[in-house]
Design a binder for these strands. Structure first.
Length: 441
DNA sequence: TCTGGGGTCCTAGGACCC
DNA sequence: TCTGGGGTCCTAGGACCC
């Protein structure tokens, strides 16, 4: 029988910050999204502040106020609460988190021949054939290695399917298991007892909508889904639910995905630090996004044939006027040249632009991607330009060596960006920038 | 004043074909 | 007068994930 492990860092972004400022370990710590918009990571001390929050009553007043979570709360709404409890607040420092993530996955990978890097802070391992080891001890070894090597706390969940490994990981974080839970050695009644206490919405793949639909047919816990009649499930729901049902019954439907497939679309979007009211600024912002997207495109060796541009006003301020629109453009020949993509973006901006709106967010999507190495010339399109490839390669090299945006298009106008992100609580890039190394006094 | 960003997969429905 | 049915492909939108 297959055995999967899921290793997952506890509140990863917050833990990365604490790793470099260990004095914070007993204080609430939160990390904010771009623009210091809302809370995207919180350590246990910060999550404990949940008890001070309650959801407002529904408009009918019939629903009881429920405690809610500080996760994903807009920062300005909880700023006072956080301050009152001496919370350390960080803007997101993705350069640091990405570097820590690489180190984390490298360490995890040493514990099994097959690894799937599932997200910035999660890896699956294939532990099939490791049955003769004590896998709980093995999980503890993984935890110790990562704690010693990176100062990051992780939890380890083990089961006969990915869904069960996820679920075990979820339970391992909760307390009674010292960070490691191996379901493969538990009896069926013992497992069922655990599943009975997992809400259906906490099962991997069940979001808000499906949770409500499942609850409506009497499925409230992971155990309910495990014991449900598969025929009834497949009549009423999509194949995903049936798959979850099987996976909860120890039948692995999802395999380990070892190879890192190239992305099928590349998206770069941002909310602006300050709303945009001039076409020139929107164009400048979108050309900047296009430039970053094109870098990512080249980094995975792809070319794109479609460019989509979108923009929207602030959905939280409809009184300022609401407008959102998008525009897709196709290129005659797929490309990875920043200049050609930027050209399309400018055309898109002119199509989308309406006077008298305050633009709050915009983005660029590159799609219809294919591998550059397999690209064919089109009889009716301009021939592939070798100089373009050389120029882009030089641009990428210089920017990698000298820092982002060292070399950019004039229309990006890098010194003068009124719409740039707000980031008032940024920590140093300890591991990726010589100017920002940790100093020890 | 201040509300994130980047992805994948699935499905329904329309266009089109024979 | 009577006006089918089945298949494929594509796209938009919804739902989910972290």
């Amino acid at each position: 029988m297959a055995i999967f492990a899921l290793i997952d860092a506890n509140s990863f972004y917050a833990s990365c910050e604490i790793a470099f400022q260990p004095g914070l370990v007993n204080r609430p710590v939160v990390v904010l999204s771009n623009n210091d918009g809302c809370i995207v990571a919180a350590n246990a001390h910060a999550k404990a502040l949940n008890r001070y929050l309650t959801k407002p009553l529904g408009s009918g007043g019939y629903r009881a106020a429920q405690p809610t979570s500080i996760m994903f709360q807009p920062y300005f709404k909880v700023e006072r609460l956080l301050k009152a409890h001496k919370t350390k607040v960080f803007s997101s420092n993705y350069e640091l988190y990405a570097d820590m993530s690489q180190r984390l996955h490298t360490l995890i990978g040493q514990f099994a021949p097959k690894q799937e890097i599932y997200s910035i802070d999660e890896s699956f391992l294939d532990l099939t054939g490791f049955e003769k080891h004590n896998l709980t001890d093995y999980g503890q070894q993984i935890r110790q290695t990562i704690l010693r090597g990176l100062g990051l706390p992780v939890a380890v969940g083990i089961g006969h399917s990915k869904t069960l490994a996820k679920l075990a990981n979820h339970l391992a974080k909760k307390g009674d298991f010292s960070g490691v839970l191996d379901l493969t050695v538990l009896s069926e009644p013992a497992i069922n007892l655990l599943l009975k206490n997992v809400a259906i919405g906490d099962v991997w793949g069940i979001g808000k909508q499906l949770r409500q639909q499942l609850q409506a047919v009497g499925i409230h816990t992971a155990l309910d889904l495990k014991l449900a009649d598969p025929h009834k499930l497949s009549k009423r729901f999509s194949v995903n639910i049936l798959r979850s049902h099987l996976e909860l019954n120890h039948q692995a439907c999802l395999q380990l995905d070892e190879v890192d497939e190239p992305k099928q679309q590349i998206l770069r979007s941002r909310s602006f630090g300050q709303a945009i009211s001039e076409r020139h600024d929107l164009r400048q912002a979108l050309v900047n996004f296009a430039s970053r997207a094109a870098e990512k495109l080249r980094a995975q060796g792809s070319v794109c044939q479609a460019v989509t541009v979108f923009c929207t006003t602030n959905p939280f301020k409809p009184e300022q006027g609401a407008y959102r629109n998008s525009c897709s453009l196709r290129l005659a020949l797929a490309t990875d040249d920043t200049r050609l993509i930027a050209e399309q973006v400018k055309i898109g901006v002119d199509k989308l632009w309406r006077e008298d709106f305050l633009y709050h967010k915009a983005g660029v999507i590159l799609s219809e991607l294919s591998q550059k190495s397999q690209q064919q010339n089109d009889l009716f399109a301009p021939a592939l330009n070798e100089k373009s490839a050389q120029l882009m390669a030089v641009m990428d090299q210089i920017n990698q060596k000298m820092g982002k945006h060292s070399l950019h298009l004039a229309s990006q106008d890098h010194a003068n960006q009124r719409w740039a992100m707000r980031q008032n609580h940024h920590s140093p890039r300890y591991t990726t920038n010589w100017q920002e190394l940790l100093t020890v006094s």
